[in-house]
Structure formats: C-alpha cells, structure tokens
Design a binder for these strands. Structure first.
Length: 419
RNA sequence: CGGAGUGUGGUGUAACGGCUAACAUUCUUGAUUUGGGAUCAAGCGACUCAGGGUUCGAAUCCCUGCACUCCGACCA
C-alpha cells in the first residue's frame, strides 16, 4: 500500500480525552477512530492488525476441528427467556430495542443461547458429537462505564468458540486441546511469555472458569501467579482452600496487574437442557449435550499488544500482527530518482510476497521517520539519494534500533526478510 | 449507578467578568530546503458543548441537560 493513498493521518498530539496508552497510541498513529465512549471505528492500518490476529486465531480454531460460522447480532427474546438471561436483573448490560411490529429484541452480548438453540436442530445422535463451531462477531454490552480505551468497549469484536460433547471425558479432551490452542495463539501474537492460565469464578456455570491473563499495568484484574507451575489465581477467588486445591503456593505467588485476553467456561448442561439440545446414545437413551464456551476479545488483544509493545516513540508491532512487514521510506530528492527506485523495490518486494507500506508522500525526512516510529512496522527500509549514489539502502529494526546497510539488490532484500 | 474533574478553530493549548477570542500545529498558496516532526511569507478555519439565568457587559459567575475522562461499584 502506498501511504499517500491513506486518508487517515497520524497526529502530532495524542487526544486529550484519552488517558489509556492503547487508545492514545492507536488514535495518534491512525489505527482507530473514537466515535464515542467505548465505541471505536477501525481504520485501515488497524484493520490489517485485526485481520492478522484473526488469521492466527482462525488457524488455531481450525486446528481444533472447529467450523467457522457467523451468527446474527440480533437476539430473540424467547430463546433467552428459556435460560433466564433475558431478565435485566440477571444480565444488566443488554442493549434492547423494539421492532416496528412491537416485539422486543436484544443485541448479542454473547451467543450461547442462539448457538445452542440452532444446534438442537442439527445434533441428535452421539454420532454427531463431539463438534465445535466458532465465529468472529461483534458483541454489544451496555457497560455502565466504558474505560481503558479499546480494552472495555460497548461494541467489540470477539472470537467465540462453542464445543458440544457427549460425555465429560469427551468434553475434557476438547477443553484441554482448546487451552493449548489458546496458549499457542498468545504465543504467536507475542504475548506468550507474559500470559498465564488463571483460575477465576465460574460464574453460574461451574466452580472455576479459566482466564488467560496478560501481565500489564493497563490491566483491570489482579492475579496471584506461581512462576513454577505457571498457573495463577484471580484475586476475586483467592483463598487458602483454593490455592491449595489448584496448587499455587500462596506464600511465593506474585501479585500482578493483568488484562484478561481470553477465557474458557465449562458450561455443562446449563444451556443444552433448557434449550433442548440433546442426543441419543448407543442404547437410544437421551441426554443433554455437554458444552463449553471459549472467548477471545480480538480488539482487546490488539489493545493489549499495543500497550505491551510500545515505547516513547510509538508502537512496536510484533512481526506476526504488524499491519505490514516492511515500511519502505522514499526520501525526497530534487529529480525524483529516489522515489522511482523505491517504487521499483516496492513492486519487486510485493511480487515476492512481502507486505509493504511505501511512504511516497512529499513530506520532510523527519516527518517520515517520526511517523514510521509511531506506526511501528517492525522493519524499515530507507531509500535516499546518499545510499542511491553508492547503491545501498538502509534497513532498521524498529524493535532493537539496529541499522544495516544493504546493497540495492532485491533478491538480497527479500532474503533478508524471509530470513 | 455513587463520587471527582473537564468541555474554546481539525488537533493541542491561552485569554482578570471588559477591545474584533490569542498562540502553536494542521490545512491552502508561493519561495527555499531535501537523512530526524525544516525555514520564510501570505491566507482559510471557532457566534467558546446545548439551553436557560445573573450583569451595562459572560469563554469566564449560577442552574439544567448532554458529552468525555478518572476513582469506585458492576463485568454474561
């Protein structure tokens, strides 16, 4: 992509109505736009990050044998009444509205009810199980107070996975594989070393739920982490009994601020029973399906990565989720030779399958460098008249600041990036 | 929802109750420059969140509403 075609600019100053680092950086660098409190639009650069994250998550979900689908954000009152979750006293963050014809409907906070209801039409035998489906879908939650930039919004993109099993053993097997897949996801987006499975309240479903908590000061949660076992307990359930049960040494556990980037709930038959999702076993006996739900907040994950990987100059994306692999910067010269050479390199890199953002704007070198630092693409290639004279370009690592000079030979440059 | 704070050009800030609301940046035009947010010149751009009130006079004081931020509560 050529930077001159981007309608959205970086800003010199961070917005005054944001305090959280993730929103300040992402707005300043032109990745997101704030519409209102807790509601953000995703701009082209931000969308590329979101799509990178989605691709990683999708791969791992498919490795579990889960099938992707896409459900409506509209929620039917009657279905939710069957599980008792339509009541505002039970779920207080609904967005509800009315149809012209008079009926009431809600905007989805989550999708256990409709997926269970839908699967009841399709699952009827033990031969149909186990099965799992997932989606990337916008959720709506009428938060009393939106906060922390994109970390807790009223509208947000979530990956939600639902598993359906015939037996507890079958469910446990899937649960464990899903847990491993989650850790691979956090590893791949760069957060693996600071993200830990954490026992937390099971809510209405079971004794515990499993959260994936990433260490950052931007977090809203507090966990007790046992470095040896790599397990943690959320402060909200911490007690002597529970730390003994889980095997976390309370005496040596670290108290840390974290953000919840994913979670897993054992649902049991909480939804399958009221919504009639049952199967017949080999003997023809009918049982409710055992379910699990597994969430990852995609936007929150982007925000967490932005918080964790940033410095005083701006964002520093891990390669796996960076909007582009290479930021190719053409400095100005009187004759336009530099831009011509940069365009040449741009086309050849693209042909080689490398994602490139070409800064072809007519602005000063300093402005280009400052923007490049702010946007945070991991590798930068600078083409200038100096280097052009002796046939070289400069390659800078945004993370380490390391600078290399390379001959202008596209095969060499391609090799450099493909490692 | 309880508490605190803030609303002024696109963005960031200034302005004692008193002149045509100032400065920087952005943007436009021209010149110069061409490896770290360059320089110079000339311009465009706000009835100061909305509605009431006090006053000879309100961006400034008061009331109501709305919006935003933070703390708390809440968080399927």
């Amino acid at each position: 992509m050529k930077q001159s075609t981007l309608p959205f600019k970086t800003r010199k100053d961070a917005p005054k109505d944001e305090v959280s680092l993730n929103a300040r950086l992402l707005i300043q660098a032109g990745f997101i736009h704030k519409e209102m409190a807790g509601v953000y639009s995703i701009l082209p650069l931000g969308l590329r990050v979101i799509e990178k994250i989605k691709a990683i998550v999708r791969e791992e979900m498919e490795s579990l044998g889960a099938a992707e689908l896409s459900m409506s954000a509209f929620q039917e009152k009657a279905i939710w009444e069957k599980t008792g979750r339509w009541d505002d006293a039970v779920v207080d963050n609904w967005f509800k509205t009315t149809l012209k014809s008079g009926g009431e409907l809600g905007l989805g906070i989550t999708h256990e009810e409709p997926i269970t209801n839908m699967l009841a039409e399709h699952v009827s035998s033990y031969k149909d199980l186990p099965v799992a489906v997932f989606q990337f879908q916008t959720k709506f939650r009428n938060e009393l107070r939106a906060k922390s930039g994109i970390m807790r919004g009223r509208e947000f993109l979530m990956k939600d996975l639902y598993s359906f099993s015939a037996t507890d053993e079958e469910h446990a097997a899937f649960y464990n594989r899903a847990k491993d897949a989650y850790m691979r996801i956090f590893q791949r987006v760069g957060l693996g070393d600071i993200t830990f499975p954490t026992y937390a309240t099971g809510g209405i479903f079971s004794q515990f739920s499993l959260e994936f908590q990433t260490i950052t000061d931007a977090g809203e949660d507090v966990i007790y982490l046992d470095r040896k076992s790599k397990l943690a307990i959320n402060k909200e359930i911490m007690s002597d009994d529970i730390s003994n049960e889980i095997g976390v040494d309370k005496a040596t556990a670290e108290e840390l601020k974290t953000v919840e980037v994913g979670n897993i709930f054992n649902l049991g038959t909480k939804f399958s029973e009221p919504l009639g999702l049952t199967f017949k076993d080999e003997k023809g006996d009918r049982y409710p399906v055992i379910m699990g739900s597994y969430g990852i907040g995609i936007g929150r994950l982007m925000g967490t990565i932005a918080e964790v990987f940033s410095d005083e100059k701006g964002l520093v994306w891990p390669k796996s989720v960076a909007p582009f692999e290479v930021h190719l910067i053409a400095l100005n010269d009187a004759e336009g030779k530099v831009l011509a050479e940069a365009e040449n390199i741009y086309q050849l890199l693209r042909t080689a399958g490398i994602e490139v953002l070409l800064d072809d704007r007519h602005v000063s070198a300093g402005a280009k460098f400052a923007d490049a630092d702010l946007i945070g693409i991991p590798m930068r290639i600078v083409v200038g008249s100096k280097g052009l004279a002796d046939g070289t370009v400069e390659i800078t690592d945004r993370h380490t600041g390391e600078v290399k000079t390379l001959a202008i030979s596209v095969p060499d440059i391609v090799t450099h990036f493909h490692g």
